[in-house]
Design a protein around this nucleic acid. Sequence first.
DNA 1: TAGATTGTTAATCGATTAACAATC
DNA 2: TAGATTGTTAATCGATTAACAATC
Lengths: 212, 212
Amino acid sequence: MSDKKISSAVIKRLPRYYRYLGELLENDVVRISSKELSERMHVTASQIRQDLNNFGGFGQQGYGYNVEHLHKEIEKILGLEKTYNVIIVGVGNLGQALANYIDFERKGFVIIGLFDVNPRLVGMTVRGIEVKDIDEMEAFVRENTVDIAVLTLPKAKAPKVATDIVSYGVKGIWNFAPIDLQLRDADATVENVHLSESLMTLSYRLSNTDME
Amino acid sequence: MSDKKISSAVIKRLPRYYRYLGELLENDVVRISSKELSERMHVTASQIRQDLNNFGGFGQQGYGYNVEHLHKEIEKILGLEKTYNVIIVGVGNLGQALANYIDFERKGFVIIGLFDVNPRLVGMTVRGIEVKDIDEMEAFVRENTVDIAVLTLPKAKAPKVATDIVSYGVKGIWNFAPIDLQLRDADATVENVHLSESLMTLSYRLSNTDME
DNA sequence: TAGATTGTTAATCGATTAACAATC
DNA sequence: TAGATTGTTAATCGATTAACAATC
């Protein structure tokens, strides 16, 4: 389907383009050149044009890019025109925070299930969804279409849950456990959010400020 | 102080080395070669040696690396031998989740203040810390040593809070608002966690699985 | 000592930037 | 048309990998 391999450096920049274009759209900006966008985003115009041309020629010589059109195109590239059914496994503080984050739903990520092992949490309702015991997860996943499983559980439990859930057919894992999940299924994919590691790069910078 | 500039690619890999070494340490592994570590981590041995040699020669020919020593050295490099005083600005679901995340405290990030504009939250206690009105933040920051401010607030409010807080002398910002903060103070540094963008790279991969 | 493995230099690969002809 | 700006090729830069002498 796709022609050449897109580098992950490019892919990681796409959401940022999408965000800036969304803001331009909100401000009723109709067209933008790569040069102007580059100044706003603090990247080179060359990089913007290179990045976009991985996916097609969205601009027009002498004019630039139509903001609405480009925004829409990047939306399609990112797969955001679809809706994704999401379950959250591990309904502790972080799991609940993500469940309550309205913005995800606005972008098409719909939470359809919450699971936990903790009997205190089971039966509780978050955003109108009842927390189920993790024993019910397999049946749930097999009966419903689940596109993404969010893992917000202790690292000790993450590998088994990930393996199980992928064996039930879930293709996307958004992993918050501080561990590298190894999936057998080549079709399935993991996106990691390692908060501790992010915080450590901050402490690195705070303690290595070169005072030149 | 530091000799040559360390690339951010290297810095971002350090916490992962640190994590693997910590696990080896827990399993009482005394020594490890770059080759063996490379196999566990799925990177090249060459990269490990190059990365580490940015900071010094921690190994020994014919032997490899002493796990405990290397772990300790990376800890120092990452600035984790110190303690950091942290405030959280925006005590919604995510702010509370971070406040409750015990692991940060274990690594030396101590939460000393919580602030919010919402009168419903002000006065509430999270992990033994009372949520204060954001109006009290300036006095608090000036009276206490605050190393890191965590911004878990709506994007509309983030730029002003960031500017203010940096003007009060805070050098590190851990930003969860979906926006690029521009800081005047060259000494101050921002680490972004853009959850939406992370989720979008996942949806990209889910909708662009090349079935070769 | 012989074998193992580092630290480091050199080679390769990939990503970013510059340049410019094509064209709206 | 003239000016602006793209899409794309070529040049540069930086990061990764390979190779190997040094040495424990």
